[in-house]
């Protein structure tokens, strides 16, 4: 039963991913992307990682897709403008499939021996309690560093996106410096 559900969800994921890539209008792609994220979080539920599933929905389907939609609205792209040359698309597809095949082949060779070595997850694996315990103990330093990374990104955006308020202020500043 689980196996059937897995293959169903996986097939739908492939389908929605294909639709994201090949729909001509970017906004349609964004909508299919939401479906794709929902299906991904279903997979996380299957392996018992509740927290990751919720975060996947909140962050990706919630925030990221909204952001993508905003960008599409702001850019107001013409469908013809974004369709590239066919030849480029085919080469990239072939390259991608080859590298994916190589990765899958490596995984196929190594997976059985890998799984034997790995410790089996405990009963609380993936629950929010286990997750938060790990987060504030083993990964407390990473957690703090991530905070500073976000602060840096915030200030960096301020640095790059700053515009002078208006020309009147500009002349004020000039007057002040001349007076000084």
């Amino acid at each position: 039963m689980m196996e059937f559900a897995f293959y169903l969800v996986a097939g739908l994921m492939l389908l929605s991913a294909g639709l994201v890539a090949f729909r001509p209008k970017p906004i349609e792609s964004a909508l299919w992307l939401i479906l794709h994220f929902f299906l991904t979080s279903t997979l996380y539920v299957f392996i018992g990682a509740d927290f990751v599933a919720v975060v996947q929905l909140l962050v990706y389907a919630g925030a990221i897709v909204v952001l993508i939609t905003f960008v599409i609205l702001l850019l107001n792209l013409n469908p013809q403008e974004i369709s590239g040359g066919e030849s480029i698309r085919w080469t990239s597809t072939v390259l991608f499939l080859c590298s994916l095949g190589a990765v899958l082949f490596c995984l196929h060779i190594s997976t059985p021996s890998l799984l034997e070595k790995m410790p089996a997850p405990g009963s609380s694996f993936g629950s929010i309690e286990a997750f938060s315990r790990t987060m504030i103990q083993n990964y407390s330093w990473s957690f703090e560093v991530a905070g500073f990374l976000l602060l840096l990104a915030l200030i960096g955006v301020g640095l790059l996106a700053y515009r002078r308020p208006s020309t009147r202020d500009h002349s004020n500043i000039e007057n002040k410096s001349e007076a000084a």
């Binding site: 560093v145 500073f148 990374l149 840096l152 990104a153 200030i155 960096g156 955006v157 640095l159 790059l160």
Partner: peptide, 8 residues
């Protein structure tokens, strides 16, 4: 953190 700082 290093990379994002240098981009800005």
């Amino acid at each position: 953190t290093l990379a994002i700082g240098t981009y800005c």
